[in-house]
């Protein structure tokens, strides 16, 4: 098994504040990995660094696309990162609210299409065929997420849980090798969370992609992930299997505070 992503000594400074402090992380092919930690630990900043929203101060982010050698993607623009096979969702939903469900998914396909501006203007056969194929693939993805009956609905009219699913569907449409989910279960009730757990596992099994997720819902994290990284104050304080993490005194300290010796 190969690493889809390998992060070495990633550091992100904002002025004098070190939000992420030399964090190492890797995700293997088809692996589900969780990144946890108390609020303000630097998890989302870490995601922003690897998806190209921030350029990290120090460190390497190496991504392996289908065949090629790993590529260092530091300083790539987000759209170039997406082309390299990384897709993400957000803590707060960021769908294109005024577009339909299908259009949202189709937008995800955009970076995989070759049609140039002339093709778009003159609508030649090749462009049309390509768009049709893209629409079909998007429909398949939506079907997998159980959204196929709402294709023509505006994204803003979907119930909350479905909006979350559509975000994942849109990310999948970019044909990623690694899917980054930022708190996918935020705001969901226990029933929806359980459904989501199955869905994430199904995506991994059927689409053969690796998943790295940030989550506060420990039940979901423990159920789903094969390995867990724990961050606190910008640093990685532990990594290992769910079992290891559960019993790690450092982690318990970070979450619950230190025990006071009587």
């Amino acid at each position: 098994m190969e690493n889809v992503i390998q992060v070495n000594g990633l550091t992100m400074d904002f002025g004098g504040l070190r939000a992420v402090d030399s964090v190492d992380l890797y995700v293997k092919d088809k692996e589900i990995v969780a990144l946890i930690g108390p609020n303000g630990a630097g998890k989302t900043t870490f995601f922003n660094c690897i998806t190209g929203i921030y350029t990290p101060t120090k460190g390497d982010i190496l991504v392996r696309s289908t065949k090629s050698q790993p590529v260092r993607i530091n300083g790539f623009k987000p759209n170039r990162v997406t082309e390299r096979g990384l897709a993400r969702t957000f803590q707060n939903i960021r769908l294109f609210q005024n577009m339909t469900v299908l259009e949202n998914a189709m937008i995800g396909k955009h970076c995989r299409l070759n049609a140039k501006i002339l093709g778009a203007l003159f609508r030649d056969k090749k462009t049309k065929a390509e768009e049709l194929k893209a629409a079909q693939e998007c429909w398949e993805i939506l079907k997998k997420m159980g959204l196929e009956n709402q294709c023509d609905e505006l994204a803003c009219n979907l119930p909350y849980g479905d909006q979350r699913k559509l975000e994942i569907a849109r990310a999948l449409a970019t044909e990623p090798r690694l899917l980054l989910l930022d708190e996918p279960a935020a705001g969901m009730n226990p029933h929806e969370t359980e459904e989501l757990t199955h869905l994430i596992r199904k995506i991994r099994d059927e689409e053969n992609i690796a998943i790295l997720l940030i989550e506060h819902d420990m039940k979901l994290v423990m159920n789903l992930s094969e390995r867990i990284y724990v961050m606190d104050h910008g640093q990685k304080i532990a990594d290992g299997t769910p079992m290891d993490i559960r019993n790690n005194p450092e982690v318990i300290k970070a979450y619950l505070g230190e025990e006071i010796d009587a």
């Binding site: 998806t51 190209g52 929203i53 623009k77 987000p78 759209n79 997406t82 082309e83 897709a87 993400r88 957000f90 960021r94 294109f96 609210q97 005024n98 577009m99 259009e103 189709m106 937008i107 995800g108 955009h110 970076c111 995989r112 849109r170 990310a171 449409a173 970019t174």
Partner: peptide, 18 residues
């Protein structure tokens, strides 16, 4: 579509590869 997406949310458009 890419234009409409960019108009609505530029960062998100970048992130899905536009």
């Amino acid at each position: 579509k890419a234009m409409r997406a960019t108009a609505q949310d530029k960062t998100m458009a970048l992130l899905i590869g536009i």
